[in-house]
């Protein structure tokens, strides 16, 4: 048991190491550097060299990486080159909560809309409702999320004035305000997952409903809503959690676009502007956080199976 845990931890550390080297190296391979961007058109060679030396950007690649890695491990994430932001504050305290809020809202939307839609589709298999839900689900996966976001903004925020156009309000400080600001971005980001969950729920439930224990429940005379919503839906949890864990990457990537469109100061915007601005250390911080999140969530998914499926528990 402990050996296994240690192995997992070792694996995670190796992966984080590879990820950090890869992202640092990739960005260093790209032409351009932060000082040139910072100097804009007021370019002078002396200022360029002076600032480059000041920020340690004249060091060889390995030295820069080692310097970053040693400090990062010690909890010193550095400051950004141009704007002199404290990266830990920026990435961890400011950007991460925004992205996590957005991601959890989207997941909540996806589950709250996707599961009932999928269940109803399965129950009303081969009816107009089923077909309608299928079309809806397909459309959700087919529209680029940024286009959807822009259309939602223009219709619901500008024309109808129902929701705010943009911005982030922390739900911890202002719960309803936070929800209010998250509805449009949450919806935009969740369309893909609504579609996926609807399809998954429908397919799984159809399969489940043919199982003997469902027939048994029916035979016991349990009402049909109970058969479906309790015995049936219980069995959807496991495949759902697996898929969601694996699709976390897609979700994180969706936040990049959603955050840009709705001007949310999250990791997605942070990473894109940092990659384009060659803020190497900000990119590193963002990549390490998303990678840890990804690995952590998938570990949790693994760990959650016994809880979700009594059969697995029994086997142990």
């Amino acid at each position: 048991m402990w050996g296994q845990a240690l192995g997992k931890i070792a694996q995670t550390l190796v992966v984080l190491f590879v990820v950090s080297v890869a992202s640092f190296g990739l960005l260093k391979l790209a032409p351009g550097d932060p000082i040139q961007i910072m100097l804009g058109s007021e370019y002078s060679q002396e200022a360029y060299e002076s600032l480059t030396a000041e920020l340690g950007l004249d060091q060889p690649f390995l030295a820069q990486y080692a310097d970053w890695a040693v400090r990062f491990v010690q909890g010193d994430w550095g400051t950004s080159y141009v704007a002199r932001t404290d990266i830990f504050t920026y990435a961890f305290k400011e950007a991460l909560p925004v992205t996590l809020t957005l991601a959890s809202f989207s997941l909540a939307f996806a589950i709250l809309i996707g599961v009932p839609l999928g269940v109803l589709s399965a129950v009303k298999k081969d009816t107009a409702f089923d077909a309608g839900a299928a079309v809806l689900a397909l459309t959700g996966t087919a529209f680029p999320s940024f286009l959807l976001g822009i259309l939602l903004i223009w219709f619901f925020a500008v024309k109808m004035q129902l929701f705010p156009v943009m911005g982030y309000v922390s739900p911890w400080q202002d719960f309803w305000g936070g929800i209010y600001h998250m509805i449009l971005p949450g919806l935009t980001l969740s369309t893909y997952f609504i579609a996926m969950i609807t399809r998954l729920t429908r397919a799984t439930l159809i399969e489940v409903m043919e199982q003997p224990y469902i027939a048994a429940a029916r035979a016991r005379g349990e009402p049909s809503w109970r058969v479906i919503w309790v015995h049936g839906v219980r069995n959807i949890a496991m495949p759902l959690v697996t898929i969601l864990g694996l699709q976390l990457g897609v979700l994180l990537q969706g936040t990049v676009l959603t955050e840009t469109v709705f001007n949310l100061p999250g990791i997605g915007q942070m990473l894109t502007s940092a990659v384009l601005g060659r803020e190497y250390m900000v990119v590193q911080a963002g990549v390490m956080m998303t990678a840890t999140l990804f690995i952590g969530v998938n570990l949790l998914v693994d760990l959650s199976y016994p809880f979700l499926d009594p059969r697995l528990r029994a086997r142990k």
Binding site: I153, A157, V158, Q161, V165, M166, G167, T260, F262
Partner: peptide, 18 residues
Amino acid sequence: FVLMNEASTALAALMAGQ
């Protein structure tokens, strides 16, 4: 000063009075 990357969103926010 609201820092924005997306100009069309800024315009939308202006029109919506945000």
